[in-house]
Design a protein around this nucleic acid. Structure first.
Length: 275
DNA sequence: ACTGTAACCTGCAGGC
DNA sequence: TGCCTGCAGGTTACAG
């Protein structure tokens, strides 16, 4: 479900609700994917950040009376069906995978039907237990990411362009929806294995465009994605390519076709996106 | 080091 | 109505 615009929307809504709060207890589903949630107990949430599709709660904890403290991060990945909520009382929900009680009595909790999400508590900035985060590419809006850098990064692999976008290596935060949307806008065949500087530049521009437009509309809700306030996003109405297989291309009127690349369903225009 | 593939989960839509 | 199959926004371990 959640790609960068959805995760950023969650971060924006959640941050003012939890920053400054101290976690007084934590409970988690026994799966090793969630069990670490309780390790956040005793820490205060200093701020809520995001890298790619990962939410990073910066945690701080006074460890002695001489002003010593330890810094950790609570890392939450929403997977396909994850959502975070804050409530005065903890609801009885069969898909609740973790919950944290805050000092003022409220509860932060994680709902994840498919259990593809992940929760970890790590020493600050030590992501060795989360390989994708550990080797995560630059943020899409990082000014240091320009066409030359992007192109050079893409050149380091011979995998299909779409597979590279999904790998989180050349750029962070792209998933199946925005990969298809940006490739459609840039008129690039998703199965291409080599792109020149000019097409890399165009692709980067369109990636930034689809992400910022979606962000403006609160993200894309296909089925599960919810903001912490329970609302859906509104970007789903604006998709040009993803989910429109069999329908005419909005640019040229040709048919959009669906095919599988590296086991991910892909939609593209047979005319606009030729090899 | 790189590449491709299967696996992890649950619910739902569509076909018969 | 019920059963079966395939599919879903992602990451990771593993084999070659």
């Amino acid at each position: 479900m959640p790609e960068l615009p959805e995760v950023e929307t969650v971060r924006c809504q959640l941050e003012p609700m939890v920053v400054g709060s101290t976690i007084i207890s934590g409970r988690a589903h026994p799966s090793p994917k969630f069990a670490e949630a309780s390790d956040a107990t005793g820490y205060r949430i200093r701020c809520l950040e995001r890298r790619g599709k990962y939410l990073l709660f910066a945690l701080t904890n006074s460890v002695d009376d001489k002003g010593g403290y330890s810094e950790r991060q609570l890392v939450v990945h929403l997977g396909m069906t994850g959502a975070l909520y804050v409530n005065d009382s903890l609801p009885d929900d069969p898909y609740q995978r973790a919950s944290w009680t805050l000092a003022d009595g409220r509860h932060l909790w994680f709902r994840d039907v498919r259990r593809f999400g992940r929760i970890a508590v790590v020493p600050a900035n030590d992501y060795r237990s989360l390989p994708t985060l550990h080797r995560l590419g630059p943020e899409p809006f990082d000014p240091a990411l320009d066409a030359a850098v992007f192109h050079s990064s893409l050149t380091k692999s011979r995998r299909r362009i779409k597979t590279q976008l999904l790998s989180q290596r050349p750029i962070a935060g792209i998933g199946n929806i925005y990969a298809d949307e940006a490739l459609w806008r840039a008129r690039i065949h998703p199965g291409t294995r080599r792109v020149g500087l000019e097409r890399a530049d165009r692709l980067l521009e369109h990636l930034r465009e689809v992400l910022s437009e979606s962000l403006q509309h609160g993200g894309t809700t296909l089925r599960d994605y919810r903001k912490p306030d329970g609302d859906t996003g509104r970007n789903q109405k604006r998709l040009d390519c993803y989910g429109r297989g069999g329908l005419p291309c909005r640019r040229c009127g040709s048919q959009l076709v669906v095919q599988i690349f590296d086991q991910r369903t892909t939609t593209r225009c047979v005319i606009c996106q030729r090899r």
